[in-house]
Design a protein around this nucleic acid. Structure first.
Lengths: 220, 220
DNA sequence: CTGATTGTTATACGATTGAATAACAAATGA
DNA sequence: TCATTTGTTATTCAATCGTATAACAATCAG
């Protein structure tokens, strides 16, 4: 019986490999089926190695959850920010891109929403989870507020902080809900229509003239 | 060692007791921690009895999921329907009640959203789950459409089936998202404000005059 | 080339799991 | 009252879990 050969890797790479393997396994088998042995198999290492990097399975899973929330926000945020320095309607475009990015792949993803829901289901009971959720939600909400403010300003709408926050909350609900149901893809409607639906609804929530956001939609 | 005394119950009652105990345990410990022993303890029966009513743990959990979706839709639907036979603005009131019911207790509930998310996380992988979700979502969407249609008609808005469905999808996203984030109650805003936020946003999505829905809000 | 370090593998252990089986007792009909 | 049925309990079992520990080998300093 010969021992398996191996390579030593840096701590950063190992930890990320293990975290990503954890997400893959959780997606397939749930938090229940995500055993350390399956994760180790998926990462191509022995089970014992996990405890060398994470003091317990719980710590590994918590790290995976934090890693996931980062994935979810960074994509959409990038879409919005890289549309920044355009011509006159720059704020409108940035907000449109952000909304659209949230209801189109890669953000619109069955595997991502499955993972997200699996962790959300544990937020209330598992001690460490609620902070992770709260932080990621606050980041999302604040980003949304900074995107909304200049749009309201550009169209002469009321833009006091209170109004701005209320509309950010509503818009966040809209985006979350459409992202969720669209990702689950129950087949009751074509998800290609989601960007148009989301942008049109957002115009209504913000009381903007029709087309303000939806005419900046990229895909058909 | 004396044997525990027991009473024989009808199949209906036993099954419901076991299903409700399952939901309680899943809420507390997740799908992972919901062992047949814990469920049996919570229901006050022996572990073996579960297999007398459900051929496997999987079947028990699936039954619990179907039971939960029924709980979630029935409450809000009732709120809307019992507001039916009012004066002139009846459709507006019914829709307002429905929206409000979805973002206030008992529908706005951390335990319910935890349960819901836990099951949603398994919809993609677990064979029997997707049908349960699809059905409950379609019911919700259709109910929303029947509530929206007369409201649009009463205010002279376009009300062709296509428009109606699009707005139902958007409104459903809004309600789902606000219900979700509100139930998780991260403390970033007061959930008492949710009804006003939801109703105001819904007016925007449906392009109704300000106050059309929000002035029918029950609570302050 | 050599020895020390430690990342990594391999094995082992107690606890817990879902499920199967055996033993019992509550309800039922005659 | 008594035999019968079967809902229910109690016990058992193999499998698998998270974790602990020991053995090994890749890497690096000198």
């Amino acid at each position: 019986m010969s021992r398996k050969s191996f390579r030593r890797l840096s701590e950063d790479i190992r930890r990320r490999n293990l975290v990503e393997a954890t997400l893959k396994v959780v997606e397939q088998h749930g938090l229940h089926g995500a055993t350390v042995r399956k994760v180790a198999d998926h990462a191509g290492v022995s089970a014992g190695l996990i405890r060398h990097y994470f003091s317990s399975k719980d710590e590994l899973v918590r790290a995976a959850y934090a890693y996931l929330t980062g994935l979810l926000t960074s994509d959409a945020a990038q879409s919005a920010l890289q549309a920044g320095t355009q011509s006159g309607a720059a704020p409108d475009i940035a907000l449109s891109r952000f909304i659209e990015a949230n209801v189109t792949p890669p953000n619109l993803s069955g595997s991502k929403v499955s993972l997200w829901a699996t962790f959300i289901g544990r937020v209330r009971s598992e001690p460490g989870y609620s902070e992770i959720h709260r932080e990621s939600y606050r980041d999302f909400l604040e980003l949304l507020e900074t995107l909304i403010y200049p749009v309201l300003a550009g169209h002469g709408r009321p833009m006091d902080p209170a109004t701005c926050q209320i509309q950010a909350i509503a818009l966040n609900g809209l985006i979350d809900g459409l992202w969720l149901e669209g990702s689950l893809d129950h087949g009751l409607y074509n998800t290609d229509r989601l960007p148009a639906i989301a942008l049109t609804a957002a115009e209504g929530i913000l009381r903007l003239p029709d087309g303000t956001l939806s005419r900046h939609q990229t895909s058909s």
